[in-house]
């Protein structure tokens, strides 16, 4: 056997354990192997009971998120060789989520929060669909394109201490997703989303730690989306103070803090 590396993996069996514990496994250190390859190797060759999520192996499905040495990472995009100098690499389930088994976390609360921000195009005024598609310029597409890259990997939730400390906080990805629709020229739902977002559990819960943006594998920049929403909300409120009529018009068109 050539070079190897030791993985410390958090194991938790709800039937047997009161709390998670670490187990160590020695795996080959191959240049082209990512953490997910090591987990697959362990499952195939050493311990078939190891439980974790994965699907695409190429950073698209967002299901293989784990903590690697305390950092939220995609297992399929984190090369083992970057930890070659370390004695051990610790792999744990994503922080701040309930643990179902080993590295598998419970996502029900996250999915409920995503749904809460109404992440779909809201359009009640015309034109009707049969009259043709909504046209959009490349600039209008650019307004929200980056925000639409989210793969729901939840790494940003694990990087955000507010998520851990305040269970009601809507969280980075959900707010970024809401902004993705608010910034879409075809959407008219910003006002509806404001009720959820311009709230102490929404944007005002964010203390701008900024780690969500740093760990995001898709460069979505949720921290930026949240701060821009805050600025938009504050400006809309201020505008309402000095020009109440104009505010009403803007809200009717885009919602209080569309941009």
């Amino acid at each position: 056997m050539g070079e190897s590396i030791v993985l410390e993996i958090a194991r938790y069996s709800p039937e047997r354990d009161a709390e998670p514990h670490l187990e160590t496994y020695e795996v080959p250190l191959r240049k082209e192997w990512v953490v997910l390859d090591a987990l697959n190797h362990i499952k195939d060759k050493i311990d078939g009971s190891l439980t974790y999520r994965w699907s695409c192996r190429m950073g698209i499905c967002g299901s293989c998120g784990v903590m690697v040495n305390g950092e939220p990472k995609l297992g399929c995009a984190t090369f083992l060789s970057s930890y070659a100098g370390r004695k051990r690499v610790r792999v744990e389930p994503l922080r701040y989520f309930p643990i179902v088994r080993d590295l598998v976390t419970e996502l029900g609360d996250f999915l409920a929060k995503l749904k809460k921000v109404k992440p779909w195009l809201i359009r009640t005024d015309g034109p009707l669909l049969r009259e043709g598609e909504y046209l959009q310029t490349p600039e209008q597409l650019d307004d929200y394109r980056q925000l639409s890259m989210c793969i729901n990997c939840t790494l940003c939730y694990s990087a955000c201490p507010v998520v851990g400390l305040d269970a009601l906080f809507v969280g980075p990805a959900a707010i970024a997703l809401a902004q993705r629709y608010n910034k879409d020229s075809r959407d008219r739902g910003a006002k509806e989303r404001t009720l959820i977002l311009a709230h102490p559990d929404g944007i005002w819960g964010c203390t701008f730690v900024g780690e969500c943006t740093r760990v995001c594998p898709q460069h979505v920049d949720p921290a930026g989306a949240i701060q821009q929403y805050k600025v938009g909300s504050a400006l809309a409120w201020f505008e309402g103070l000095i020009m109440p009529k104009k505010r009403r018009k803007t809200e009717d068109r885009h919602g209080a803090a569309a941009d």
Binding site: Y96, R101, L165
Partner: peptide
């Protein structure tokens, strides 16, 4: 451990 039958007993880590 005591957990509800047919329902996974999630472990909730404390912050």
């Amino acid at each position: 451990p005591h957990y509800t039958k047919y329902h996974p007993r999630w472990f909730r880590p404390r912050v």
